[in-house]
Structure formats: C-alpha cells, structure tokens
C-alpha cells in the first residue's frame, strides 16, 4: 500500500504513513457537495424563486415583469377553479391513501408469516404495478372504465345494472383515479410495512403469544405500535406525492380537467396556467399555495403521531 495516494498533490503524509492533510479533511464535503449543489440549483432554488415569480405579473413573452404584490393570490382565492381543484385533490388523496394503507397493512401482515409458501413470488407480483409507467396505468384504467365499452361496462350490463359514465361526475372521476393510485402503490407500501414488521423483535410476539393474545390483538397491540414510525413515513410521503397528483387526472379527463373540471387537480391547474395560458405569475401563486398545504398537512401528520404516542 505504499504506492498510490499521491493521486492529487495536496495529499501528503504525516507520521505513521497516514494521509493527514487539510485536503483529506476536506474531501467528505466534496463527496456530499453534488447533492447539495443540485438541490440548491434544481430543488430549493426554484421553490424560492416560485415565491418571487408569484408576486409578479410574469408572462412567458416579454421581459418586463411588473410587481403586483399579492394580486395573484387574490385572483386565486376568487378563482372557483382553484377551490374545485383543491376539493378534487383532497378527495382523491383521501379516497386513495386510506384504502391503500389499510390494504398494505393487511397484506403485509399476511406476508409476515414464516410458513408462507412462495414468499418471493407474492412480493414480486405485488410490486409489478409499481414498476408500470403511470401513463400506461392511467390509459389502461381509462379503457377498463370506458363509458360505452370495456370490461366494467360489460360486467355492469351483464348483471343488468345501470351503466356508469365514470368520467362524467366529480365523484366517479375521483373514485377511478383513486383506484389507479391504490393499484399502483399498495404493493410498494406492503413491502415497506413488511420490512418494518420483520424488524419487530420476535420476543415481543412470543410475549403476546404466551399471554394468549389472538391474531387481531397481536396485530393492534404489538405490530401497529412497533411500526408506527414507518406508517408515519408512508403517510408523509403519500401526502407529498398524492397532493401533487397530475398524470392520472390529465390523461383520464383532459388538460383542463374535463368539461366541468370534474378531474381538475391543483397541479393540473398549475400546469395549465403555466404552459397553456403562460401566466407564470398566477401559476406560481398556485404552486406556493399547494406547497403551503403540503407542509401544513405533513406537520399535522407529525403532530397526530406525537399525540398518539403520548396518549
């Protein structure tokens, strides 16, 4: 090991042959620098700049950006589309997250069983939806839930039930979009929960068993409290991701969220205002509003988690 090490001049050796130099103390920062630089340039920077743009009348064309104060925010609060988009987004978020978490917990506790056969098969099969492109997922489900044709309509007709025009009303649109989200994310969350469940010390289960706790009691009194940090983690990531939902409503309805805005979500509105109407200032105000909502909801998640822990 005596060759090497002068690959860059500053690395000189002190006693004991150690590389002891200012350079070596500095290198860890170089290794983590790419993350922080890119985050500043393409993460935090743009977010802060969004706040700045939101205070201006900022069109795509034209170099003058007139400062308008909070006017864009005023326009937003008076824009019925914004409220509709917010309602739809929250509805889709709740309709998708709650069942998704519940299903994932149930499936994970079934997979968390030593005698289960074909473990790898189940895990892989459940993860397949998560590697499927979002665009594909949306288009497949759009055709499955077609109004005139498609499997769902066929089943309803065969059972002599009324046929549903899924894309027509806000509620059915939300349901179909929620189904897409549930389909794509349940398997992934299942694996996350399963990993957390496997990390629970088996002594805890032994104790529960010795004391005669049944499956359900064990699940609610041992498993759930032990994996609470993981559940909180998935709730927060689902909040951040779910409230930005875009691809599903865009492709299931239209860039404007359908004729009556039944599929309009906040990010869809943001996208339309920015890249169809080229009102960058207004779009930025919407982005800041959504950012604020996401941060508040994430904090609420943490607060609720803390409350549960202390009670």
């Amino acid at each position: 090991m005596t060759t090497s090490l002068t690959w860059r001049a500053p690395a000189t050796r002190g006693r004991n042959g150690r590389v002891s130099s200012v350079w070596e103390r500095f290198t860890p920062y170089i290794y983590i620098a790419p993350f922080f630089l890119l985050f500043l340039a393409f993460g935090l920077g743009p977010l802060l700049f969004t706040g700045w743009v939101s205070l201006h009348d900022w069109q795509l064309l034209g170099d003058t950006h007139r400062y308008v104060g909070l006017q864009n925010y005023g326009e937003m609060f008076n824009d019925p589309r914004f409220w509709k988009a917010l309602r739809n987004t929250l509805a889709i978020f709740i309709l998708s997250t709650v069942p998704c978490m519940g299903l994932a917990l149930g499936l994970a506790s079934m997979l968390n069983n030593r005698t289960l056969r074909a473990k790898t098969f189940w895990r892989m099969a459940l993860l397949v939806p998560n590697v499927t492109p979002l665009v594909t997922v949306t288009l497949v489900f759009t055709s499955i839930f077609g109004r005139d044709y498609g499997p769902v309509t066929w089943i309803l007709r065969s059972l002599h039930l009324p046929v549903i025009d899924w894309g027509a009303s806000a509620m059915t649109t939300q349901i179909v979009i929620a189904i897409m989200v549930i389909w794509r994310w349940t398997g992934y969350n299942t694996l996350i929960y399963l990993a957390a469940m496997q990390a629970v010390p088996s002594a805890m289960y032994d104790c529960a068993e010795i004391d005669g706790a049944g499956r359900w009691t064990t699940f609610t009194q041992v498993t759930l409290p032990m994996i609470r940090p993981t559940i909180l983690f998935t709730v927060v990531t689902s909040t951040v991701g779910g409230l930005q939902i875009f691809t599903e409503p865009l492709l299931f309805t239209s860039p404007t969220g359908g004729n009556n805005g039944q599929g309009l979500t906040v990010t869809l509105l943001l996208y339309g205002q920015a890249f169809n109407s080229f009102k960058f200032g207004y779009a930025s105000a919407i982005a800041i509003a959504l950012l604020f909502i996401i941060l508040v909801l994430s904090l609420v998640n943490f607060a609720v988690a803390r409350l549960i822990r202390s009670s």
Binding site: L44, G45, L47, F49, Q244, A287, L291, L295
Partner: peptide
Amino acid sequence: TMALPSQLGLVP
C-alpha cells in the same frame, strides 16, 4: 429535503 415537493418549482 425529501419532504419538499420540488415538483412545484416547475415554473422557475
């Protein structure tokens, strides 16, 4: 930073 929805910086 994972809790930050950077997608919202779309316009800038």
